[in-house]
């Protein structure tokens, strides 16, 4: 388990936990980002925002602060679809 900010571009990760208040959790929920959601990391320059794709083609820009509070694990290719 590591924060999203520590993932490399091109990696596939799965959200395990979101640290933060109810408001933030709910907001991410509604946008389709919740524990179990798989993400593809598209860009992560380090120190800046992280760009991910979730649920197919939806892309999100996440600020560094927010990305740091999203804890993920790496998904191996074989297990990519459950």
């Amino acid at each position: 388990m590591f924060p999203l900010t520590a993932s490399l571009p091109g990696a596939r990760v799965r959200i395990l936990q979101i640290l933060g208040g109810r408001g933030m959790q709910q907001r991410l929920w509604h946008m389709g980002l919740r524990p179990g959601t798989e993400l593809r990391v598209i860009a992560n320059a380090g120190g800046g925002p992280v760009l991910v794709a979730a649920n197919g083609e939806t892309r999100f820009g996440l600020g560094w602060g927010m990305a740091q509070r999203i804890l993920v694990e790496e998904v191996r290719e074989a297990a990519a679809h459950e």
Partner: peptide, 9 residues
């Protein structure tokens, strides 16, 4: 405030 934004295709 933390930044999160959906990027359109």
């Amino acid at each position: 405030a933390p930044f999160i934004m959906e990027l359109p295709p």
